[in-house]
Design a protein around this nucleic acid. Sequence first.
DNA 1: GCCACAAGGTTGAACTTGTCAAGTTTCTAG
DNA 2: CTAGAAACTTGACAAGTTCAACCTTGTGGC
Lengths: 151, 151
Amino acid sequence: MMGGVGTPVAALSARRSDPAAEAWEAMSRVFMATRGRMLSVARELDLSPPQVVALRFLHDGRPMGELAEVMHCDNSNITGIVDRLEQRGLVERRPAQRDRRVKLLLLTEEGTRVRQELEHLLGEPPPGIAGLSRADQRALRDILRRALALD
Amino acid sequence: MMGGVGTPVAALSARRSDPAAEAWEAMSRVFMATRGRMLSVARELDLSPPQVVALRFLHDGRPMGELAEVMHCDNSNITGIVDRLEQRGLVERRPAQRDRRVKLLLLTEEGTRVRQELEHLLGEPPPGIAGLSRADQRALRDILRRALALD
DNA sequence: GCCACAAGGTTGAACTTGTCAAGTTTCTAG
DNA sequence: CTAGAAACTTGACAAGTTCAACCTTGTGGC
């Protein structure tokens, strides 16, 4: 830990011998360690963190309201974020035919490119995960997929 | 999935048969699913998301600059966040004796209480993890601890 | 001791985010 | 046809983020 600064977080409290809580604590630590990377990727692509989240949650034809829902924020908030993505030419709004109150979001060519770049950079596993044995990696993947199936 | 809204993210791209990337993708999905809980916990305790992060990264005697470093943001940013935490009586500033330029952060009694509440609420594993078999939970914990040792 | 310089933190300006309360347009039910 | 709801926008205001400029305090060379 060369450039480190000591314990990043004071003791996260996982009740001893509660393996779920202990696993979750470890998982939270792995994620906290990747905060920096996410922020520098955003900077590199000249996007704010919410714009990154929005782009990742976006897919062609997704209504604004749905984006607001998955991002857990207000509709009025999405308006501004999409405004700026649109100004940058990454996204377009198109009223839905079936209900013209609804605006569907479409990625432009450039938007698709940026989004792919984003997934490429953020999809890279952090060193801790990349450094695990292949058996551990497979076990981790399988366990987490079981967890996702329960959500 | 009753109130669901379809696929939250369009395909995160994990190269096939790269178990590390697949594991990381699954892990990212688990985390995305907990965004909402983090936000509602923040609301419940009347804290902004950055204040939550700051409180979690805080420990008694931590210098402001160190907090800025672990939060990956500018010193000037921390000034404002700490200002508001101080106004709410959760934190105090005290100049370090050895170097009076440095301000050390101390949790007040109330600050300690809120921080514990925070760890309690956010330390609760999400349903997907809690619903795993005990063997899976232990395996997950052990693998992630190995990953942390590599960071 | 004195001086230039660096380091930790604060301030102010410009912008983005987030929230809430109207407001507009477009459905939908009765 | 009309009352009300739904989807988005607008405006106002607090908070976060970044940058440059600043103030105070340490540090090293002389």
